[in-house]
Amino acid sequence: GQVNVNNTTYTFPTPKLAKEFAQKAAKKYNLTVHVSGNTVTVK
């Protein structure tokens, strides 16, 4: 799974890890998680 945070893309071996990372990043920066297919964007 891929996660985009502040124009930086992070790649994870599983969608589960990507989702967990996205949720932590969203909480940390007070942003929202947007899911589109296999790509998760935090903005």
Rank of each mutant, 00 (worst) to 15 (best):
Lys24Gly: 04
Phe12Tyr: 02
Val33Pro: 03
Val33Asp: 00
Val5Phe: 13
Ala25Leu: 15
Lys27Val: 07
Thr11Gly: 02
Gln23Ala: 14
Pro13Glu: 08
His34Val: 14
Tyr29Ser: 05
Thr8Gly: 07
Thr39Asp: 03
Asn38Gln: 05
Thr39Asn: 05
Lys43Trp: 15
Thr41Asn: 04
Asn4Leu: 11
Lys19Ser: 07
Thr32Lys: 08
Gly37Glu: 04
Val40Gly: 00
Leu17Phe: 04
Asn38His: 05
Ala18Ser: 02
Val3His: 13
Gly1Thr: 12
Val5Leu: 12
Val35Asp: 01
Gly1Ile: 14
Asn4Glu: 10
Leu17Asn: 03
Lys28Gln: 09
Gln23Trp: 13
Tyr10Glu: 01
Val3Gly: 12
Lys43Tyr: 15
Leu17Arg: 06
Leu31Ala: 08
Glu20Leu: 15
Ala22Glu: 02
Thr32Asp: 08
Ala25Val: 15
Val33Leu: 06
Gln23Tyr: 13
Val35Leu: 09
Asn7Tyr: 15
Asn30Val: 03
Thr39Met: 08
Lys28His: 09
Val3Asp: 11
Ala22Leu: 02
Lys24Ile: 14
Lys27Ser: 09
Ala25Tyr: 15
Val40Arg: 00
Asn6Ile: 14
Asn30Ala: 06
Tyr10Lys: 02
Lys24Met: 14
Tyr29Arg: 05
Gln23His: 09
Val40Asp: 00
Val33Ser: 02
Asn38Pro: 03
Tyr10Arg: 03
Asn4Phe: 10
Gly1Cys: 15
Ala26Leu: 10
Lys24Thr: 07
Asn6Asp: 09
Thr41Asp: 03
Gln23Thr: 10
Val5Asp: 11
Ser36Ile: 11
Lys24Cys: 15
Lys28Ile: 11
Lys27Ile: 08
Asn7Trp: 15
Ala25Asp: 01
Pro15Tyr: 09
Asn38Lys: 08
Ala25Ser: 04
Thr11Glu: 05
Ala26Val: 11
Ala18Ile: 01
Ala18Thr: 01
Thr32Arg: 06
Asn30Thr: 04
Tyr29Lys: 06
Thr41Arg: 05
Val5Asn: 11
Pro13Trp: 05
Lys27Tyr: 08
Ala18Cys: 02
Thr39Ser: 06
Phe21Asn: 01
Val42Tyr: 03
Gly37Ser: 03
Leu17Val: 04
Asn6Gly: 12
Leu17Met: 13
Leu17Lys: 09
Asn30Glu: 04
Gly37Asp: 04
Thr14Arg: 02
Lys43Pro: 05
Thr41Gln: 06
Glu20Tyr: 12
Ala26Pro: 02
Ala18Gln: 00
Gly37Pro: 00
Thr9Val: 13
Ala26Asp: 03
Thr8Asp: 06
Val40His: 01
Ala25Ile: 15
Ala22Tyr: 02
Phe21His: 01
Gly1Arg: 07
His34Phe: 14
Pro13Leu: 10
Thr32Gln: 10
Pro15Ile: 11
Tyr29Asn: 04
Asn7Gly: 14
Val35Ile: 09
Glu20Trp: 15
Asn7Asp: 11
Ala18His: 00
Val3Cys: 14
Thr14Met: 02
Gly1His: 12
Val40Lys: 00
Asn7Ser: 15
Glu20Ile: 14
Thr8Glu: 06
Val35Glu: 02
Gln2His: 12
Ala26Trp: 08
Pro15Val: 13
Asn38Ser: 08
Asn30Asp: 05
Thr39Arg: 08
Lys24Phe: 14
Thr8Cys: 15
Gly1Asn: 11
Val42Met: 05
Ser36Leu: 10
Glu20Asn: 07
Lys19Val: 08
Gln23Ser: 09
Lys24His: 10
Thr32Asn: 08
Pro13Ala: 14
Phe21Thr: 01
Ser36His: 11
Thr8Val: 14
Val40Phe: 04
Thr11Val: 13
Ala26Glu: 08
Gln23Phe: 11
Lys43Ala: 10
Thr11Asn: 05
Ala26His: 07
Pro13Arg: 11
Lys24Leu: 14
Val42Trp: 05
Pro15Phe: 11
Thr41Ser: 05
Gly37Met: 04
Asn38Ala: 06
Leu17Thr: 04
Lys16Gln: 13
Tyr29Asp: 04
Ala22Lys: 02
Gly1Trp: 07
Asn4Thr: 12
Gln2Ile: 12
Asn30Trp: 14
Lys28Ala: 06
Val33Thr: 04
Thr11Ser: 06
Gln2Tyr: 10
Tyr29Leu: 06
Asn7Leu: 15
Ala22Ile: 02
Pro13Asn: 07
Asn38Glu: 03
Val33Phe: 09
Phe12Ala: 01
Lys16Glu: 14
Thr32His: 08
Lys16Pro: 02
Lys27Trp: 07
Val42Arg: 01
Thr14Asn: 11
Thr8Ser: 08
His34Asp: 06
Gly37Cys: 03
Leu31Thr: 06
Val35Gly: 01
Val3Glu: 11
Thr8Asn: 08
Val5Thr: 11
Val3Leu: 12
Val3Met: 11
Ala18Pro: 00
Glu20Met: 14
Leu17Ala: 12
Lys24Glu: 06
Thr32Val: 13
Thr41Pro: 00
Asn6Arg: 14
Thr9His: 06
Gln2Lys: 10
Thr41Trp: 08
Pro13Phe: 06
Asn30Phe: 09
Val42His: 01
Lys28Arg: 11
Lys19Arg: 14
Thr11Asp: 03
Val3Arg: 07
Val35Met: 04
Asn4Lys: 10
Pro15Arg: 09
Val35Thr: 04
Lys27His: 07
Asn6Phe: 15
Lys28Gly: 04
Pro15Lys: 10
Tyr29Phe: 08
Val5Trp: 14
Phe12Met: 02
Lys16His: 09
Val40Leu: 02
Thr39Ala: 05
Tyr29Gln: 05
Thr9Pro: 02
Phe21Ser: 00
Gln23Met: 13
Asn38Leu: 07
Tyr29His: 06
Pro15Leu: 12
Asn30Tyr: 09
Val40Ile: 04
Asn38Phe: 05
Gln2Phe: 11
Gly1Ala: 12
Tyr10Asp: 00
Thr14Val: 02
Thr8Tyr: 15
Thr14Trp: 03
Val3Asn: 11
Ala25Asn: 03
Asn38Arg: 14
Thr14Gly: 03
Tyr10Thr: 02
Asn7Arg: 14
